[in-house]
């Protein structure tokens, strides 16, 4: 973390151009970088609060985005995942994993020039050497004056692999389905304030639809010519689809009580 801060500060002080106008911490917009533009983003996400257990996960990502022209964009991420949790009354364990992701995004229409901005997005990741994730998103957004609205439909496929007796075995797979809805009021060129809503649905092969959890919280966005900073706090509101597997008002074993994300972007 310390190193990330140092790199961030160093790059900040050297760069004098503007970063892509991303507005939300979680919800994607249809914008793509123009041809030849390169952006650097640093992400930090903290997830905390499991029931009956100390739990704090920290996900860090460094992302490099490239504008390819004709409304295409690609990006590469290096990811670090750390989880710290209690295993007994006074013992905690920390696990560390690293990962790599690659995303592709194409913008089909524009939120100002067209009735609706539409983009398609897909990302593949490897995590810790034994997990493969595929994520596809439909992104919609609309700009009306100073108001920005965005919606994402996200379909994920997570598969874990294992070497067993020299053969590659795949045990569990998960298919979370997520919907994000976001609004921001861009008060001026430098500042925006809004909120993000997230609806997470767990759909497993064996157990079917297990839960549907709502999160929601405020997002603020500061930007200048050279950089942007976005922060979001996202507490869990509750489980709106209770099942035998997830009977509670909240889901606090696989999901967290709250999530906080800070995102810093600069352009090269």
């Amino acid at each position: 973390m310390k190193r990330i801060v140092i790199i961030t500060v160093a790059v900040f002080s050297f760069l004098l151009s503007h970063a892509q106008d991303r507005n939300f911490a979680r919800t994607y917009q249809t914008n793509v970088l123009s041809k030849g533009a390169i952006d650097l983003e640093f992400w930090h996400t903290s997830r905390f609060g499991h029931s009956g257990q100390y739990f704090h996960a920290q996900d860090q990502r460094i992302e490099v985005e490239f504008g390819l022209g004709k409304n295409w964009q690609t990006a590469f991420y290096f990811n670090r995942y750390q989880e710290r949790y209690s295993t007994s009354l006074n013992g905690t364990t920390t696990s560390n994993e690293i990962g790599f992701s690659n995303e592709w995004k194409v913008k089909l229409s524009d939120p100002v020039a067209n009735k609706l901005g539409v983009a398609l997005y897909s990302e593949w990741s490897i995590k810790g050497g034994d997990e493969l994730e595929l994520e596809t998103k439909l992104i919609l957004d609309k700009v009306i004056g100073k108001n920005l609205f965005a919606f994402n439909g996200v379909y994920e496929l997570e598969k874990e692999f294992e070497w067993v007796n020299g053969r590659l075995n795949s045990d569990g797979s998960e298919m979370p389905l997520e919907f994000d809805l976001a609004y921001m009021y861009n008060a001026n060129k430098k500042f925006g304030i809004g909120f993000e809503l997230r609806n997470h649905n767990k759909i497993g092969k064996v157990n079917g639809w297990e839960h549907s959890v709502l999160f929601g919280g405020p997002t603020i966005n500061f930007r200048s010519n050279r950089w942007f900073v976005i922060a979001n706090y996202l507490p869990q509101w509750g489980n709106v689809y209770k099942t035998d597997i997830a009977p509670g008002n909240k889901v606090l074993d696989e999901l967290e009580r709250a999530e906080a994300r800070i995102l810093v972007g600069i352009s090269l």
Binding site: H18, A19, Q20, D21, N31, V32, L33, S34, K35, A37, G67, G69, K70, N71, K107, D110, P111, V112, A113, V143, L148, S267
Partner: peptide, 13 residues
Amino acid sequence: YKFNCAGCHNLHK
């Protein structure tokens, strides 16, 4: 205009 001017901010009318 669409391809070159919407990368950093949304298009201005």
